[in-house]
């Protein structure tokens, strides 16, 4: 694990890789980081240093190592992080791409754009359905599981759902695959006579979204699910 990162100033790291802003935001660390290092900012916001480094490594495409010794509080942070990512996808990234498609649909577009628009609409519905499932079923289950362990006397949150985290895993498809398809279509096959600025920006945004969704899946599959499986076993 890249522990040297802990002594680096957050501001300098962001200048090199602005995507770190998204990670901080999802851990509820606002900008205005002054001279904080990653280590000092973790203390200030009560974040596990290991967890933050792991999230930064994932965003740098470094495969995560198994994280030992995460507390229940860390698990709550991960779930909050994932929920905020859902919100970012749904309320920021999808609308940007939506607007691109609407732009392409103007002025008698080639028929492929109509198909692409339908393809993207179906994709969004599928992904939003998946997010809804996580927000409404998987995450509440995990939260109530750890709550039950912390407060065995508290019957108000006792879960009776016959559910386990492996159901979550099986629900979990490769959601970024269709974005890749859409990029291939826009890069290679859709005829050239459409607004090139809109097309270029769509490819940029799709690429960002694909990368972020991929990291999102890595966090779920390689961090959250293994930890919760362990808790279930115990």
């Amino acid at each position: 694990m890249n522990n040297c990162l802990l002594n680096i100033k957050v501001a300098e790291a962001i200048e090199k890789n602005p995507r770190i802003i998204l990670i901080l935001e999802r851990l509820s660390i606002p900008l205005g980081v002054k001279e904080h290092t990653f280590s000092s900012i973790c203390k200030a916001y009560n974040i596990n240093e290991k967890l933050l480094i792991c999230l930064i490594n994932i965003s740098d495409s470094i495969s995560p190592q198994i994280l030992d010794g995460l507390s229940f509080n860390d698990i709550r942070k991960i779930i909050e992080y994932l929920s905020m990512t859902h919100d970012y996808f749904q309320n920021e990234m999808f609308p940007i791409i939506d607007r691109g498609i609407l732009e392409l649909l103007k002025n008698n577009p080639p028929k492929e754009i109509l198909l692409l628009s339908q393809f993207y609409k179906d994709y969004c519905n599928e992904v939003i359905e998946h997010f809804k499932y996580e927000n409404e079923v998987a995450f509440p289950y995990i939260l109530s599981l750890i709550n039950n362990i912390e407060n065995p006397q508290d019957t108000s949150t006792q879960t009776t759902i016959k559910y386990c985290v492996n159901d979550y895993k099986s629900h979990h498809d490769n959601i970024e695959e269709k974005l890749n398809d859409m990029m291939s279509l826009l890069i290679k096959f859709i005829p050239p006579q459409i607004n090139y600025r809109v097309r270029r920006n769509m490819i940029f945004h799709l690429n960002e979204l694909k990368r972020d969704l991929n990291n999102h899946s890595i966090i779920e599959n390689n961090i959250l699910i293994p930890i919760v499986s362990k808790i279930e076993e115990n």
Partner: peptide, 16 residues
């Protein structure tokens, strides 16, 4: 084609 889903293959088939 670097395309995995059948529905995107369909769009390709129309463009081609």
């Amino acid at each position: 084609l670097n395309i995995k889903s059948t529905s995107a293959m369909a769009i390709y088939a129309v463009t081609a």
